[in-house]
Design a protein around this nucleic acid. Structure first.
Length: 314
DNA sequence: AAGCGAACCTGGCTGC
DNA sequence: TGCAGCCAGGTTCGCT
């Protein structure tokens, strides 16, 4: 489920184990994901120290001692699992050493043991394996292969094709009602599609756009331009939307974080925020807003399912 | 020029 | 049990 909160959760999970580590071995188990891996991929990574992990929109960034950045995008179905070396076998943790930090399926809880496998054996869609100097394994799994990886020069990042046209971070300072209203000025697309467009805001996807619009009480069917200010009217709608976006993302990150923290006691499932969805995936169910008699509707917009309540969202 | 649908690829679920 | 059809978190391309 890689929208911004999921990528952020993966970033935090990896940060705990990878910061300061050196990449000892990198193995590609196929020549490409969405795109071919860049030239010399493994050689450019091997021996490098990981100096920082950051996130930009839905991109995970590993900053290397060489001055390059390993860019990872999880696409629709990408996951990252951490496999720590087992010290005292049998005593401490009887369960799997696999620690799943990235999930792509909110609807499916992973079953106990799903990610258990012995070192050296890999699943069908385990495409990349990183191993550090201290024996930590990072496994990239991606059934649909819409994800990709690239290596870019850190000092040219902002000018890079991938990043040059991304809008502001929704949790950053640049994101506010005035920005949103201004960006939406004169735009004739539906508001839903506008919010999904990474050039306007970078990091939202289908789920969190639906959820944020519901929380804000704003209809996804509205034209984007209706966020813009007119005749000095306060940017009420844009303000509610800005707040809702921030809140839903923060709530989701927190939920991802908490499931990550208690992983050792559980089975590796991650991302309990799916239980907090108010409209996404709830077609036909009654609206959760107290007193509302409406039901959640589903409609296709720009090729994606929109979930919303016609009564609450105006 | 902006905006929309299709394409990329695999798997899971539903219904016959 | 099998199989067809539909749906899925994202991004990019090509046509209007």
């Amino acid at each position: 489920m890689p929208e911004l909160p999921e990528v952020e959760t993966v970033k935090r999970g990896l940060e705990e184990v990878l910061l300061g580590e050196t990449l000892r071995r990198v193995e590609l188990r196929r020549p490409n994901l969405r795109f071919p891996f860049p030239r010399g991929f493994c050689a450019r990574l091997q021996g490098e120290r990981i100096e920082a992990l950051t996130r930009r929109a839905k991109y995970l960034l590993l900053h290397l001692s060489s001055g390059e950045i390993l860019v990872i995008h999880l696409g629709m179905s990408g996951r990252i699992a951490i496999n720590k070396p087992q010290r005292d076998q049998g005593a401490a943790d009887p369960k799997s050493p696999m620690r799943k930090v990235g999930s792509t399926s909110p609807a499916q809880e992973s079953r106990p043991g799903q990610f258990v496998h012995e070192a050296g054996s890999h699943g069908k869609h385990d495409h990349v394996i990183f191993e550090t100097g201290t024996g930590i394994q990072i496994v990239y799994n991606d059934a649909r292969r819409f994800g990709f990886m690239d290596l870019i020069e850190a000092n040219a990042m902002d000018r890079h094709k991938i990043f040059a046209h991304l809008g502001p971070e929704p949790l950053g300072n640049q994101m506010n009602a005035a920005y949103l209203a201004d960006a939406a000025q004169g735009r004739t697309s539906d508001l839903k599609a506008f919010l999904m467009d990474q050039r306007n805001i970078a990091g939202l996807g289908n789920i969190y756009v639906c959820e944020a619009l519901f929380r804000a009480g704003v209809s996804p069917l509205r034209k984007a331009a209706s966020l813009a200010s007119k005749a000095g009217k306060p940017l009420q709608r844009a303000q509610r939307l800005t707040d809702a976006i921030r809140e839903v993302l923060e709530d989701a990150i927190e939920a991802g974080g908490s499931s990550l923290r208690d992983y050792r006691q559980t089975d590796g499932s991650l991302g309990y925020f799916q239980h907090g969805f108010e409209v996404y995936g709830r077609e036909g169910e009654p609206c959760v807003r107290p007193g509302c008699t409406g039901q959640v509707l589903r409609k296709s917009q720009a090729g994606r399912s929109t979930f919303y309540c016609r009564i609450c969202q105006k």
